[in-house]
Design a protein around this nucleic acid. Sequence first.
DNA 1: GCATTAACACGTA
DNA 2: TACGTGTTAATGC
Length: 241
Amino acid sequence: MRINWGVPERPVLERARDVTEQEWAGIPWLRVLSPEHQDAAVAGLRVAKVQPGERIVRLGRPATFWFGVVDGLLKMSNDTPSGGTITYMGVPPGAWFGEGTLIKREPYRYNIEALRRSTVAGLPIEDFHALLDRSIPFNRYLMNQLNERLGHFIAAREIDRQDDPDSRVAGSLAQLFNPVLYPGVGGLLRITQQELGYLVGLSRQRVNQALNTLAEHGLIGIEYGGVRVRDLAALRAFSMR
DNA sequence: GCATTAACACGTA
DNA sequence: TACGTGTTAATGC
């Protein structure tokens, strides 16, 4: 763990570029906007590639962008005083986060770092507030997302109370397959068993064991470098058992 | 007892 | 070649 208070390393999006046509499709809230608002948003949007371990958002830094995952996998976490890490959530493709912090105009209250090579997009805070002031569809999108995330964190508390590793893996997977919060995931979540281990707090070997149990129950399919959902409702149910 | 680390073989991108 | 997966053995709480 390296702390460098007051030594600002280059923010991720300073070496960013404009969004490509293809990346458009991976940004779910763009399509709810009116054409004029779409144009304005696209003009402000920045995109950058990040490496594993690289931090996109740093605790205590002023909130400057609304961030989203176009491709890859991030995690949201905080460090504990005792030197450990609390991981709040995995952040898969289609996820957009930080709106609460932007609305309050406060510093970020968590770290976001890449678990693998990822493509990250950011909307500058001024553009974010401009949309908030002018676009009803954007407000509706955000309200829906905030509502969904409330349910997400309630579920996260339930998952945390389970001590059976299989249930915890089932619950974490079910969360990552949330179609509202993570529309970019679809039926196939690209995640290695090692990465899932980091998110759930288990060894790769134990995750492998849990995945095979879930697959035997017909809840998921195990693929090379990924997991496919077979029965999301049953996966959720399994995690609460 | 159960999860973790370490180590290895094997398959895939 | 580098990485992800499946498996086993030794170790620890």
